[in-house]
Nucleic acid binder design. Structure first.
Lengths: 204, 204
DNA sequence: ATTTAGACTGAGCGCTCAGTCGGTTTTTGC
DNA sequence: GCAAAAACCGACTGAGCGCTCAGTCTAAAT
């Protein structure tokens, strides 16, 4: 009955974090009970509270891992990819964001819930994690806009605002996909096309 | 101590619905307790369950009112406004959506939470309300695109997809505003400008 | 004045939950 | 091989939850 070393070589603590990520994402913070988490992981409730002093701290640990995962993925992508123009860079980043949204579905779902934002109101650590994620994402788009304006592929406009608009568009696509409201694949081409028209320099 | 007829001439049931709308929007379904709702309205807990058979039915009643409010507002707007072109209609509808998002902040916040979508999975009535709201909104944008394509102000593209993209853009702005992530006013011009460029016919 | 039905009450019930604690097992360092 | 430390266990606790119910109050009908 005892199951000390969980399968796959990962530690019990790590197993709890992974299971919690899925549960928090799929059911939300309030609707995830420690009893259920205990059942899923095979760890006793006491064990969970041995590793995390309370439910909120567990949530914060989950969010921190999500932050690290997302930032690592994006930095990895930027390092191993070269772009011909700022517009190219933005399109590449958009595509990568959409792919990542599919590959890391439950981590993105967690970010689309209200739990983290509510906690961020009272918890500075939580706010820091969220800011770090969005800063990373917005910076990439913003940088692309600035580059594109230098190389002439993108029209003059406030770079941060453009980044926010682009971000809201790809994020909506990821949302549509996770909620099965509309097949992301079906909207992808129109979205990229619209975004290019929105940004590119007009020939006078 | 007794407070039978609540102030303002509205019935006790109506007062409960209004208070519940605010609480569900601001704190979410789970984090709103009947005890708190009882305190806020001045009605005993038993009274709430006299009017609504359970918490879920109260939530559904709230959502139904929200649906009616939003649809009424949009139909009213469309009836009393004339447009010069399809593109004009879309821009008008976008502006109206953004204004409505500010004027009916907590009703929109309710729609941006997960509660209704989670309930919709198991409750067909809930699903119907949500579908009615989004059908109403998307139809307006879609109709604008079709009109614009006929009058030559909008380029050829799948109308439903264009409507989804436009909707996701204005909805993001309303979200930025309610969460105080970015002042909606500061993004408004760029958003409308970008959207026009995205949609309009290109001179060859 | 009496009846009656609908609106309303609040103590209390059964249950779930996050978190605790005393004790046990496993791992580690020597 | 042994002791100390770390990991783990699960029964338990008390607070808070949605909801019930036996009964009270009010206003209109008779």
């Amino acid at each position: 009955m005892r199951n000390r070393r969980p399968q796959g070589g990962i530690s019990r603590k790590e197993a709890i974090i992974r299971a919690a990520t899925i549960l928090f994402a799929e059911k939300g913070f309030k609707d995830t009970s420690m009893a259920e988490l205990s059942k899923v992981t095979g760890a006793a409730e006491g064990t969970i509270f041995y590793h995390f002093k309370n439910k909120e701290e567990l949530f914060l640990t989950v969010l921190e891992k999500v932050k690290e995962d997302i930032i690592r993925e994006f930095h990895g992508y930027l390092e191993e990819t070269r772009f011909d123009s700022g517009l190219d860079m933005i399109e590449g980043a958009m595509t990568f964001y959409i792919q990542l949204g599919a590959a890391m579905e439950n981590r993105f779902l967690l970010l689309h819930r209200h739990d983290a934002y509510e906690l961020a109101k009272s918890n500075p650590t939580c706010r820091k994690h969220l800011e770090a994620i969005y800063d990373c994402l917005l910076e990439i788009f913003e940088h692309g806009v600035v580059l594109g304006q230098r190389d002439g592929s993108i029209r003059e406009m406030a770079a941060r605002k453009a980044a926010l608009i682009i971000f809201s568009m790809v994020d909506a696509l990821v949302r549509f996909d996770t909620y099965n409201l509309y097949e992301a694949a079906g909207l992808y081409r129109e979205l990229m096309d619209s975004c290019r028209r929105m940004l590119e320099q007009r020939k006078l």
